[in-house]
Design a protein around this nucleic acid. Sequence first.
DNA 1: TTAATTTAATGGGACGCCAAATAAATTACG
DNA 2: CGTAATTTATTTGGCGTCCCATTAAATTAA
Lengths: 401, 401
Amino acid sequence: MVAPADQRTVRRHNLGLVLGNIAKGGRRSRARVSTETGLNPSTVSSLVGDLIEWGLIVEVGVEQDGSIGRPGRSLELNPDGGAALGVEIADDGVGVLALDLVGTVRYRAFISQDNREKVPAEVVAQAADLTAEALKAFRNAKIAKVCTIAVPGLVARGDVLLQAPNIGWNNVPVLSIWRERLPDVPLRIDNEARLASYAEMTMGIARNIGSFAYVSGGIGIGSGLVLDRKIYRGSHGFAGELGHTIIDRSVPPRSWGAQGSLQTLAGELALLELAGLPTDGRLARSDPDWTGREVARRASAGDARALAALDTVGAALGVGISNLYNLLDMEAVVLGGYFTHVAEWLKGPIERELNARVNAEHWAELSLRFSGMGREAAVRGAAAWSLDAILERAGQEGAEA
Amino acid sequence: MVAPADQRTVRRHNLGLVLGNIAKGGRRSRARVSTETGLNPSTVSSLVGDLIEWGLIVEVGVEQDGSIGRPGRSLELNPDGGAALGVEIADDGVGVLALDLVGTVRYRAFISQDNREKVPAEVVAQAADLTAEALKAFRNAKIAKVCTIAVPGLVARGDVLLQAPNIGWNNVPVLSIWRERLPDVPLRIDNEARLASYAEMTMGIARNIGSFAYVSGGIGIGSGLVLDRKIYRGSHGFAGELGHTIIDRSVPPRSWGAQGSLQTLAGELALLELAGLPTDGRLARSDPDWTGREVARRASAGDARALAALDTVGAALGVGISNLYNLLDMEAVVLGGYFTHVAEWLKGPIERELNARVNAEHWAELSLRFSGMGREAAVRGAAAWSLDAILERAGQEGAEA
DNA sequence: TTAATTTAATGGGACGCCAAATAAATTACG
DNA sequence: CGTAATTTATTTGGCGTCCCATTAAATTAA
């Protein structure tokens, strides 16, 4: 069922257009907003007037670029107009990142701890406390706030963490725990890889790319799909389980995963075993960067087993990615997680497989990239997602009143 | 870049809303349109007035349902308001289907011939001639016409058929050949499986399903992805190559396809070989239903090799579909092509694999269905796609003038 | 025959965009 | 140094579109 449109619809749309133009393009005059959006100057004046009145944007002096004519009055998002919060619950700790409306970091914190041994409700409460702390970085207490939590598992209906195998959580009612602590901060929950992909799209290596997949290497292999500039979640929110995808049915099963799935062939444990390193070492220590760094160290030193392991893992990953391309025909794949530490050795075998298997390759240039955000990808994506929510809601709600 | 909105935007939107309501819901009064769309009765009157003036809808008498009050005046799409044409170029022939705006079939034809031996340009010309013939079924020559061609291969930029392995075509400039013959009929080209999926969504077994995949079994295995009620084409139009997806890297290569791809393991040729039937038999005869019917006949008769072959093929297909579910989390998969003829034997092994491999299965009910449209799926989808194009364009263009 | 009910059309008001005119602030140039 | 040129922002008026309230029309119920 599609909603009918009326004048308010138009206003809302154009408010969002102006706000988005300033948010994405940065400081600029009304005149520039007018030419870039295609809206009439007088309309822009009117829209900007509303946005200023609501405290979303501010006038910050005049533009002094020495050009002819009356100088424009610079508009900017009001930094104190809102708090965009991102929280990450990972196996090795809890992190928080707070952005103001301009996108500058106001607060950043990370508590290192092994969440596999913790009680889920306590960790969520901890995250809420950390968020409350982050909010102190904002003077005005009455501003718009939104928080997004990145979790390493499946989320159902946007409120319950159904399953997070790496930290052993099941059916954690994240939203209701949160509401007890911070009832006035709206919360959204989403999968870690999905939010990381959002970070790559908004401020990472996948800017200006319409459709891509972010593939994160850890004990499991998660992925976030961005199709036509929108996060794709699937009908029930379970999309992107690339690690469970089967690429080699005939391979004998391993102790840590399904037979022939990408994650048993290219996950951290596979790499460790192939490289002759103890797999229980990774499980014991909770540093997610250890495997990548250690294998990279050995490969640099010329360790034959490490090099062979990377070739094998890269080939498996290449097959998985070729399946992605053949199904979804994206423009790029961004690799994150442990993959980034061993990028130089993975690139070759992955591209070898892509070349052999992807038909579209002949016509379309597909691009393989590695994330540059390291461990922060998920929190940053979460905060960016919150920021978008605030801006979107602002444009909508303003038009109501 | 997003376009600014103004009053015309609103009018266009609401025109589309009214037109769509009548198109999808069938004959109804202005009052009903008003309550169902949420538009004010007076607004609906005004919109309907325009649509009638432009010849898109007509008033057909009054509603005589015996209920109290003044009876409504029935509105309906004007059957003679447009011609929606669908053409299919398959390996075994060329078909055409013409719908009027109400969706009733006005013309239907199929020329049986082996297109592998034909010159591509001639076949396209043939299709154009057939379309010209179909147009004679419409009295008014000045109505809106749109034609969509379904082709068994990859289409680039919506105008060139890049590659159709089953009929051996490459780089056929379909659109320009068409323009020489029928310059006044706008043409769209798309992949056969993609259009078949559209048919399943609009009038087939996938009605009311938001996200699903149509998987078509032939010599190759093609698929059409519908995500959130929209056909997904990918960045370059190559999405849905499920057949090229690797599910069993370790399997020895076959003569007819890539090593371990779904299509070498579950395509027609694999089934024939496993069932002990000659594969060159299928290639020689150009009846796409032969394999399915023959194997079904043997399986019904208790032929052990045929039964074993179906089990093997079903298992491979099950793995391929489980990969689809794990990646895209759809609500259903619709099987078409030769699969429909052997549905009863495939269902078991497919569901076995899904059960074992799809994680989401625990929470979401996924559904496996078989197409009921047979060979007509693609043409019907093509015609339906044309119909939608006409209606959409009508709403847009009307508002311009 | 009258009342009740439902449908469709009509007129007035409000909203929001655009276009044109006006005011404001700066540079360019004789 | 003063005027012209240029660009920015605002104001005013007109127009399109939707909604609301009213009226007219067409039917059933009593």
